[in-house]
Design a protein around this nucleic acid. Structure first.
Lengths: 256, 256
DNA sequence: GTGTGCCTTTGATCTGTCTCAAGAAAAGGC
DNA sequence: GCCTTTTCTTGAGACAGATCAAAGGCACAC
């Protein structure tokens, strides 16, 4: 790569005509990108600089593996653009997607603090650019800045919270309820008590239906059927990856 | 209570003839108890003292609620003796146990860092004594001591790890496999690659079969049937709450 | 002791979800 | 543009595990 160190560019995405637009490339400094993340948002320039020094960028083609169950963990990842799925594979070959990670989101922070190999695998769902931050620079900064340590603790606690909610959904909700839950959270963005926004909303499915189905712990076939069932009752309409919510209130209170 | 401040005594367990043994009471100082926990093991006396100042003890009778879904979180709990179950209740009334917590173990640390109410409920499975540590003293100590912050981070990461393993088990393992997994981890204590200890081991079920079944995401009926199936093949023998593992190697490799 | 209540087992049946097998519809390559 | 490949839908059947019902068994109070 001809560009300067610690610089990101969307233009040199593999498979794109990079040379053609190299002159007008919208280069982004790693520092600026990191500083905008919630995790690092309260850091000063010196701190961001030290983090950046432990960071390198990765480009992963669609379908490629980022890490595998059993690999050692040397740091954590941030998605710059693209999309990543985290999941495990059973001995019989079937797969379960635990999380779908998009731009600005991170994964693998928790494992940094454990001296253990990964338990999930990570694959790119699209051509993806990642930043990898080495764990030692994170540890140094945690040791230096208690406020940053607090922030990391909040971050892990939030992850834990989400995972507990998933366990609840898997344990005592039906497939249809999980699908509805996904649609609602995608449409309303976690604001469950949002009394406004009664108007029909559109949801763009964040991944292929197969991947989404696995994330919701069901087969693609069953996911398809559930969607068509909701369609038949007039609660939603489906057009490819776009789901329009026709009656938010009834969808919310719909029972199995 | 007549005893000194910040002192624990097993003798004044409700329902026991406390006065009779009051003179010979094996009182334990809160400081000493806290200092022995992994979480606080590297703290000096002053630090332990500050934590203790934010700690109070609770006695909960068997079956009583400790906190409820929706309650605000003011700190975390440590089990001194007894047993606690964490779980959620569905709108239809059925319950799912997420975790069973015993002496020396803690619960609710993660939620301290989030300004959110509890998502699970906690109930005592036996007469139980708890310590409750207020979150502000924890925050103070985290701000003061980066090594302690690191320790908390490791603790949360470990929780997360366990929960991801649970999700894996729920998603792509059969009920029988989950039961076997539980028996193996109870017998071998996480040491999966323990080549020694081939001799038959005994497992004392850590709770009633109904509670355990819920923890493993199955009905009591099905749990009973699985146990008897393993018994029929000669892999285990069951006597009340005691399960003897007759063939550890075959149990480990048993398929459905 | 001997009830009384709860936990556990066993049996019979039911149902949500998966599997397998094709087709239909997009998406991507050339 | 057309052809290949992947993804998505639809149907029929199978199965793991749930549910319902009832009978033991065990602990504990009196």
């Amino acid at each position: 790569m001809d560009m300067g160190q610690k610089t990101l560019s969307k233009a040199d995405l593999p498979g794109q005509p990079a040379p053609a637009r190299a002159s007008k490339r919208p280069a982004i400094k790693v520092e600026a990108f990191l500083a905008r993340l919630p995790m690092f948002s309260e850091m000063n320039a010196a701190e961001i600089g030290r983090i950046t020094a432990g960071t390198h960028s990765l480009r992963i083609e669609k379908g490629e593996r980022i890490f595998h169950h059993g690999d050692p963990c040397g740091g954590f990842h941030i998605v710059v653009y693209g999309q990543v799925k985290l999941g495990f594979t059973s001995p019989q070959g079937s797969e379960k997607v635990v999380e779908i990670v998009g731009p600005g989101q991170t994964f693998g922070e928790a494992l940094m603090f454990l001296e253990r190999p990964y338990i999930v695998s990570a694959h790119a769902l699209a051509d993806t650019m990642l930043l990898h931050v080495a764990k030692n620079v994170m540890f140094d900064e945690i040791a230096r800045d208690p406020a940053f340590a607090r922030k990391m603790l909040s971050g892990l606690a939030l992850r834990l919270h989400g995972l507990v909610r998933d366990v609840e959904a898997y344990s005592l909700r039906s497939s249809a309820e999980r699908v509805i839950g996904y649609l609602l959270s995608a449409a309303c963005g976690e604001a469950a008590d949002d009394t406004a926004a009664q108007a029909p909303r559109e949801v763009l499915l964040s991944a292929g239906k197969g991947v989404l189905a696995s994330r919701l712990n069901m087969t693609p076939e069953h996911f398809s059927r559930v969607l068509h069932e909701l369609l038949a009752i007039g609660l939603i309409s489906v057009d490819g990856k776009t789901v329009r919510i026709l009656d938010l209130e009834r969808l919310r209170t719909h029972t199995v």
